[in-house]
């Protein structure tokens, strides 16, 4: 029996800002419905990898495939259509500051569905409830805390029930209970809707709870060190750097 084709495939990709190479020779595959973790030290280029996966930064060399089609070689309008199936939560929140939380979540729905305003509002309320923000619909982003802004970012990313969800450090700045709720949400979405999830995170507890597979980026050699399930990497990896990272420095 052959394995199903990967949902996302990264093939010898090099990422750079101008001449400044951030990561080179990245190759990994993300299966449909997996929770895939991108991990590595601060500043190693995790957010940059996410930018190239979500259509914001073209790789210098190499290709990225979605369902076997090369993402960066598509005509622009087709790439835009592919991107519509993504939900992205940015590291800094990136909420629209002049819209209420409900309007932030509703905007994608208004643009891409034909639902009535009442139905859109109901969906926005439900998405906010999923991230623990029931009743905060009419607040503005500047009126809520940093951790709450993070969670609204998650709710907005989920607005259209995308096929792929990208989360950049979703649990940074969250209390342990909210962080656990978020992990449960990630697993539940994967379970019930079959969403593929690409998550950048440092939180070890969260990594071991949710991850199916992961890639480890290294800031020194500027490339990936390994891929695999983090629990197995923690216990069996022959790379000291990876074991140290996953064991908090203790080996």
């Amino acid at each position: 029996m052959t394995a199903p084709p990967p949902h996302i495939e990264v093939e010898s990709v090099t990422l750079a800002y101008g001449d400044f190479v951030i990561q080179h020779d990245l190759s990994f595959r993300i299966r449909r419905g997996d929770v895939y973790i991108i991990m590595g030290g601060s500043g190693c280029g995790k957010s940059t990898v996410m930018r190239s996966l979500t259509g914001l930064l073209a790789p210098k060399t190499g290709r990225i495939f979605y369902d076997g089609t090369s993402f960066w070689e598509m005509p622009a309008h087709e790439r835009a259509r592919t991107m519509r199936r993504f939900g992205v939560m940015y590291q800094s929140g990136a909420l629209w500051s002049s819209m209420t939380l409900s309007e932030n979540v509703a905007l994608p729905l208004e643009q891409y569905t034909t639902l009535s305003p009442a139905q859109i509002r109901a969906i926005a309320t439900y998405k906010l409830a999923l991230v623990g923000l029931r009743g905060f619909d009419d607040f503005y982003p500047s009126e809520i805390s940093g951790g709450m802004q993070k969670r609204v970012g998650v709710a907005r990313a989920m607005a259209l029930d995308p096929e792929v969800l990208f989360f950049d450090e979703p649990s940074a700045g969250l209390d342990p209970l909210s962080a656990r709720l978020l992990d449960e949400l990630i697993l539940e979405l994967r379970e019930s809707l079959g969403t593929t999830m690409v998550v950048v995170t440092h939180e070890l507890a969260s990594i071991f709870t949710i991850a199916d597979d992961a890639v480890f980026l290294d800031p020194e050699t500027k490339t990936m060190l390994t891929t695999g399930n983090p629990r197995e990497l923690r216990d069996h990896s022959d790379l000291p750097k990876v074991r140290a990272f996953l064991n908090r420095g203790a080996s």
Binding site: Y126, A129, L130, G132, L133, R134, G135, F136, D137, D138, F139, L181, E184, L185, E188, L189, E191, S192, L193
Partner: peptide, 19 residues
Amino acid sequence: GIRGLLRLAYAVPERQGAR
């Protein structure tokens, strides 16, 4: 799956006085 999502949606009660 729906039951799971409903449970998550009601996991955090509405904060008093927020609305």
